[in-house]
Write a protein that binds this DNA or RNA. Structure first.
Lengths: 194, 194
DNA sequence: CAGATTGGCTAGCGCTGCTAGCATCGCGGT
DNA sequence: ACCGCGATGCTAGCAGCGCTAGCCAATCTG
């Protein structure tokens, strides 16, 4: 029996290895450099082994995305709880969000840009994703005006941050004015709050 | 002499054909269906002919993007000039922008999402792009508050629209509440305007 | 100890963007 | 009028992609 247990352990360890290798490669050279061949070489197994763990490349990327999501949630929480005041919290979360997108572009893309078949906005979405959205929500809800749906306002603020992050990173918005744009955004969203 | 002229004409016509075929294919089946082989078959020439007109697939996509940009600019202008009042114009432009993204996803992606080597936010950016941004600007600037940089505010509003458009289209935001989110956004940006 | 089952491998399929090298066609000079 | 030459578009192929069929060995089971 313990032999089977060991096997399972080794198998789980190898799966962890695959995800870690995919993440490292993506963060170092971008997702276009992450091929199943390179990934297989990295973990020192043959290509088909990957397919005994994941349905395909997309599933591997989705696993990396979920991992990154947990980190994003943690960073948002840290930013939010480090300041006091609703406006300050909103600004801090916005700053943390765009900083994450800038510092971990591969993770960010896996979560929010690329199509990896990850369910969103449904109960089947991974808990890490809900947690990250919850952190955004805890920063946005307090600045919601009378009669505004906090969830909708969170979605809107999130979308705005996403737009800033992606357009800036792709070079479509000049990098140097990022802070100023973020300030404008948070200012307009926290217009009537303390 | 007129033979060379005819040749040039035919060549220009063929180039137009390539871009048109790429656009049609992309709009009908998405960019992943646009391969150089299918494109060549569509224009009834061999593959290498494409490379005598464009440096590569990216350049073809960029040409489609510029074309789409002109249409986006026209639609934004139409939306803006069809209503009166600054708030109304801002809302109309926002609606037109997200509608364009939804109705012409392939064009939108070529312009704003995919990396096709198109210069942005520099003098080398194509005139069509500047024109589209100018239309946004004409809608945003009138609602800028005292001391706010209209250009920066335009960029921020644009980024927010881009976020809404991309997240909604990729299924990360539920479609049905799009109008409500757009209303929240424009409301917050036009807070102090007439 | 023989037979069944599992697990990882090699090899290969059909596709991608792109290019080298070869024909053929038509212009310009003698 | 004809011949050489440059331009033009073709066939064929390269290297790499995601993914899978089928084999072979090692392990578990009766």
């Amino acid at each position: 029996m313990s032999i089977q247990k060991r096997r399972e352990r080794e198998r789980a360890e190898r799966e962890r290895l695959i995800v870690a290798a995919a993440r490292e490669l993506a963060e170092a050279e971008g997702w276009e450099a992450v091929t199943t061949r390179r990934l297989a070489a990295e973990i020192e197994y043959s290509q088909p082994v990957l397919y005994s763990h994941f349905k395909g490349k997309e599933a591997i990327m989705a696993a990396v995305a979920v991992e990154g999501c947990a980190e994003l949630a943690a960073e948002l929480r840290a930013a939010r709880t480090a300041v006091s005041g609703h406006r300050e919290a909103l600004a801090a979360v916005g700053e943390a969000y765009t900083a994450f997108a800038r510092r971990r572009p591969a993770l960010y893309d896996a979560i929010f840009t690329l199509d990896v078949g990850l369910p969103f906005a449904t109960p089947e979405a991974p808990a890490e994703l809900w947690e990250a959205f919850g952190e955004l929500s805890r920063a946005v809800a307090p600045v919601a005006a009378e009669g505004e749906d906090p969830a909708l306002l969170t979605e809107t603020y999130w979308a705005a941050l996403h737009g800033l992050a992606t357009l800036t990173r792709s070079g479509r918005l000049p990098e140097e004015a990022h802070a100023a744009r973020l300030a404008l955004l948070t200012g307009h969203f926290a217009a009537g709050a303390s």
